[in-house]
Simulated assay, not measured.
Amino acid sequence: MSDKDPVDPAEVPVFTGDLVELDKQVKAISSGGAAVFSAKAGDVHSSSRPASAGAICDGAKGGAF
Results as ranks from 00 to 15, higher is better:
F37Q: 14
G62E: 04
G62T: 02
S30I: 05
V7N: 14
P6A: 14
S31L: 11
V20S: 09
H45N: 08
A60H: 02
A39T: 15
C57Q: 15
V14W: 07
I29A: 14
V44I: 08
S46M: 00
G54Q: 09
K61M: 03
P50A: 01
V20P: 04
V36P: 00
V14Q: 15
T16Y: 03
E11G: 14
Q25G: 01
D23V: 00
I56D: 02
K27H: 07
F37N: 14
S48H: 06
G33M: 11
A41G: 02
L19W: 07
I56Q: 06
E11L: 13
V36E: 04
G32E: 14
P13Q: 02
V36C: 06
C57T: 13
I56H: 00
A55H: 04
A53W: 00
S2E: 15
H45S: 04
A53M: 01
G42W: 07
A53D: 05
A53N: 03
M1L: 10
K27I: 06
K24T: 03
V7R: 15
G32N: 12
G54N: 12
I56F: 00
K61S: 02
A64N: 08
G32R: 12
F15Y: 10
A53E: 01
S30D: 14
A34H: 14
D3E: 10
D3C: 10
V20D: 13
G54T: 10
K61Y: 00
G62M: 01
T16H: 06
C57D: 11
A34E: 15
V44A: 04
A55T: 13
D3N: 12
A41H: 05
L19P: 08
A51K: 07
F37M: 11
S2I: 10
C57S: 14
D23C: 07
C57R: 01
A41R: 07
